[in-house]
Write a protein that binds this DNA or RNA. Sequence first.
DNA 1: TTGAAAGCGTTACCAA
DNA 2: TTGGTAACGCTTTCAA
Lengths: 336, 336
Amino acid sequence: MSARVRIKDIAEKVGVSTALVSYVMNGKEKEKRVGQDIVKKIREAAGELNYQPNRIAQSLRTGSTKTIGLIVADIAIPFFGQLARVIEDEASKNGFTVIIGSSDEDAIKQGSLIDTFSYRQVDGLIIVPSDGTADQIAALVKQGMPLVLMDRYFPELETCHVCLDNYKASYEAVNHLISQGYQQITMIAYRSGMIHMHERIRGYREAMAAANFANYIKVLEVPYSFSRTETENSIEKCINGNKEIDALLFATNSLTTAGLNYINKMGIKVPDEIGIVGYDGNEAFDFFYAPITIVEQPLNEIGTKSVNTLISLMNDPDKIVRFDLSHSLNIRKSSR
Amino acid sequence: MSARVRIKDIAEKVGVSTALVSYVMNGKEKEKRVGQDIVKKIREAAGELNYQPNRIAQSLRTGSTKTIGLIVADIAIPFFGQLARVIEDEASKNGFTVIIGSSDEDAIKQGSLIDTFSYRQVDGLIIVPSDGTADQIAALVKQGMPLVLMDRYFPELETCHVCLDNYKASYEAVNHLISQGYQQITMIAYRSGMIHMHERIRGYREAMAAANFANYIKVLEVPYSFSRTETENSIEKCINGNKEIDALLFATNSLTTAGLNYINKMGIKVPDEIGIVGYDGNEAFDFFYAPITIVEQPLNEIGTKSVNTLISLMNDPDKIVRFDLSHSLNIRKSSR
DNA sequence: TTGAAAGCGTTACCAA
DNA sequence: TTGGTAACGCTTTCAA
């Protein structure tokens, strides 16, 4: 590697002190009243030598790394992949670099990611917290680490968050099904202590109750699993031969996928025999033989708001803001 | 933020110099022959004060950030998302942190990511290079930046790479179709100067020629686009009413998806009227009414090999190795 | 076996 | 306007 050019090299070449070079490189020549000709000389020398500041040294000196740590539940899930991309873009627009970690919904792994990131002196953290990690988050808050929770949060903690208004989303999803004539709507969710799941379920329950279908309320909580087969089996056990279900509300994309596979297999007819609404669409649904209604999250908004909230938090640590954004109910048309 | 504990705080507490603390924290107490009791005291003090070393200071001093920069073509594509996850895991096992960037197949964006990463003094780079960026890569090589290209490479450059053996994959995909009785096999690829596309096409051509179907060789090169509708239109133009096609080989996952949508729409029957093989599967295919044969890449191997190659390159900068890994031909069963 | 101190590349205070 | 220099927190050499 060709020896890196340092600020000192420029200073020597021009015949000034490192201080002046630093001022010029940081655009403070006006503020510090550096002479016009010297500014020009320094600029030229920097260009000739192809000077690149050393961020590490800057970070050590300034105490800021201009780095954001992002911990998502699973980077291999397109929803989080897309979110990561939006966040990276927005951060970069603001001069920040993002380091990404995938917790795989595992508290231990999340903890070690937090350690790694804090060891690396990130300026702030955006986290999609896993189940059972309220203590980790509380510890970060106590430390004073700038922090934005995304997609989920802990209501008992004083943190910023950017999430979907899950209650409203489920409520309206149920009403949509009802408006199509369905009544015996069952919800299929993951078993989880996290608020987003609870809110999705609560929205369902209250919408059902409001429509006087309280006696049809039925929630199947599937244990979280990376294996789709397992998830499908759980769903199968619930639906199989159950004549008292005429519609399904799936709480996540992976549950929808698993459920549709099962429905496909059994030859159950959508939408005649069963109505479907699922959270988060993907291109897979276009191959399904029938159109599927989905609860779509405002990805761009979630990502950009998370970044911007975090950045303002760095400047104003006590300003807690919370966003519960609105979904849209879209139809994923079948290409058949 | 509670004032960070420094090595100096421990030294003062124990009543020794910072050197000793540094030795102990880095596990060099044997090598440096530090007294047993002092080691113990330092350990205790570090524990009590909850000492966390400052990576930035370490990096500045040692010249190594223990960071890998990863640039993928598009982090929102599941293939790259999964790869990112594997890479992050493997890097972390080796004490490295990964910073990820998405070039969106854009040379300019890739260039600015390289700048950002090098500004951040990454110890090495894993890149999925975009079309037309050979000069960027050549510049990195010239600088002596440890570098591994992934998924694609530039044959004219002396770089390490970890890729699929795309030639072989296409060759065998064609033979698979032929063994099923298809003859008039058309390939649908992206228009690209990149080697992986060329190799996929070359494998197709040679397999066709070897089977004496040279006169059926037909390659449709679709311009790259983020819009699936555009891609579908291009495919439509090629297939529409063309009676001289009895099978299609799609060069990427997105092309397969677009193509299957078109086939769905037209009611063309798979596999009776047309045979299909596509690169990289995804769960969407399970919803397609017929089973689809896919060329599957060894994700884990690609990811881990890339990381390990990069790490050995850091220690031994002149050791250029190239991997062209084998695919497997799998059937994605329809759930119908 | 231990400690003092130089230095990594910057920034920013203070003095000139 | 400009320059000298201490400091950021750590590692590592050299001397004791």
